[in-house]
Amino acid sequence: MSETTESTAGDRRSDFPRFRPATPPPVFGEFVETMRHLQDLTVAVDAPADVYATALAQAQALVETLEPYDAPEGRGPAGRVMDLPGRGSLLMPPWRVEKFDADGVRARGELRRYHLGGGGVAHGGVLPLLFDDNFGMVVYAARRPISRTAYLHVDYRKVTPLNTPLVIEGAVQSVDGRKTLIRSKLMDEDGTLLAEGEGLMVALLPGQP
């Protein structure tokens, strides 16, 4: 079982929950990667009816296996396993953080078939997710107060390829009271700029969720 949330479901600045990193059984990482592969296949396969029927029955059996263990936010390990790609969350693309300090945050990974938009490249809506996650980590690494995204802007410079090593890095640009302005870049490994993101993160007041 993974670790539970902190007893103070927030800090003195807000009621936003802060969760401890989880330490699930080693098999959890393989489980998450298998589920990612299943996501890729779900949007990729073109199968006959009997194959879909077999897969449906197996998926329903998997739901029955897992459903008794449905847990509240912060109890399940997904999103709290820092050494797994995407922190073990299926919501996040499977990227690994390789730099995390007050000067900025850099992560590296790929987008997969699940993230296909059309024409063999990533869906444009996936990139704001990448940038928003980067903004949140930059705020935390810079030791700024817990904040929520007030503004997020993405400039698309080139199409973003699938199954290609990519890098995202961001840093604090300015601070004004509760406001933290962050700028980030998404690039391929050769440094070709694919997209730029700007986010305004606003620190929560006491009692704000």
Rank of each mutant, 00 (worst) to 15 (best):
R183S: 14
V175M: 08
G170F: 07
A78H: 11
V138C: 12
A142I: 07
D70R: 15
D101F: 12
H115Q: 05
T149V: 10
R87M: 08
V105K: 11
P145L: 12
D133F: 05
W95G: 05
D188N: 14
G88A: 10
S184Q: 13
T164M: 05
L186E: 02
F135H: 09
D190E: 15
G86I: 04
Y114K: 12
L186S: 01
I146G: 10
M92I: 08
F100K: 09
G120W: 01
G124R: 08
P161D: 01
K185P: 00
A71P: 04
P161K: 06
A150R: 15
P161H: 04
G120I: 02
A107H: 02
R75A: 13
G118Y: 11
A71H: 10
L90H: 06
M82P: 00
V121M: 03
Y156V: 07
V172H: 03
G125E: 09
S174Q: 13
T160D: 00
A102R: 15
P94K: 10
G86L: 05
G125R: 06
M187T: 14
G191F: 01
I168E: 05
V139H: 12
R87F: 13
R113I: 01
G86E: 06
V175L: 13
G119W: 04
V121L: 08
G191A: 06
G177S: 02
D155L: 15
R106L: 11
P145E: 08
F131I: 05
R113Q: 13
L186W: 05
R75S: 10
V126S: 00
R112F: 04
V154K: 10
T180V: 09
G88V: 08
M137G: 00
G109C: 10
I168C: 08
R106D: 03
S147V: 03
F135L: 11
G120A: 06
A107C: 10
L152G: 08
S147E: 01
N163K: 10
S174F: 02
S89V: 03
W95D: 08
D132W: 06
L111A: 01
L152W: 05
P161Q: 05
R183C: 05
R113V: 08
F135Y: 15
H115D: 13
G136N: 07
E98S: 14
A107M: 15
G79K: 13
P93K: 07
E73S: 13
A171N: 07
A122N: 04
G79M: 12
E110H: 09
D176L: 01
K158D: 06
D188E: 11
V175E: 13
I182G: 09
W95M: 15
M137F: 13
L111V: 04
S174C: 01
T180C: 14
